[in-house]
Amino acid sequence: MNAISFIPLLLALTLSPLLLGVINRTKAFFAGRHGQPLLQTYFDLWKLLQKGAVYSRTTTWLFRAGPMIGLAAALTATLLMPLGKCPASLAFPADFLLFAGLLGLMRFFTVVAALDTGSSFEGMGASREVFFSALTEPALFVALATLVRETGQLSLSTMFGQVSNAHWLHSGPALGLVVLALMIVLLAENSRIPVDDPNTHLELTMIHEVMVLDHGGPDLAFIFYSAALKLWLLSALVVGIVLPGTGDPRLNLLLAVGAVFGVAVIVGVIESVMARLRLMIVPQLLVGAGALAATAFLLALKLN
């Protein structure tokens, strides 16, 4: 482990709230508005951290632990995620399993904290979140399995280091399907538009937002920050597959950061041109993502 390997971590920690700003500015551009400042998420986080926390008497330690464990899980997952060709701080065989597991842990504690409030409203959001994530997880795992099969590497860092133009020429269709499936997983996991609307406060359609209604102050800041990190992590996952490598490591890093923000712009465009899907249709989309990933896996099996 050397100093270079901490660069992806530092970039993720400092730049991830900016992703939300980029998405909002893209949406504002499409709507013809000026939009909020790019750094708005940083201001919000700072404001929330200044506040004190209020806890309901019906909640237990689980409610207080939820945001902290969520943030800890997100930070640990950030250690594992490389940025383009730049390897992650921690890399070992099968680390992608830990990565997916940490995302699962983060979600589990958000859900448990929501259930701990005893509000039926938050229970509804928790139920939806668990249902949808049960459908996205197979897609994520099969997509990662396809990458393992294509590159023959078991660690995220070596996997992304290995993906090259030759892979795209050799098995472009399979990789394309993987990227498509992961994009849908990204939108669903970060509660973006075709699945959930981050701006809405209409009871019947909220998923993620409804679970964190009772959190306030620093807890809410933790939740916002972990959500931003999660968006960064999944964007980096997509970017790692798509981005071709160049010889110069510094140029690679610059390209990767640009590409992560490119993903944010794409998310903003999708949110601007698409309507939110009906709640009944969402499982169909997520199973579709799983079907795409499975198709990619079968294609990769046959070709090698």
Binding site: Q284, A294, K302
Partner: peptide, 20 residues
């Protein structure tokens, strides 16, 4: 149903690959 059809489709694809 449509979700079940989709899953059946993926299974059919797997079976076709195995058959070949």
């Amino acid at each position: 149903g449509y979700v079940a059809s989709l899953l059946a489709g993926v299974s059919i694809l797997a079976v076709s690959f195995w058959m070949c």
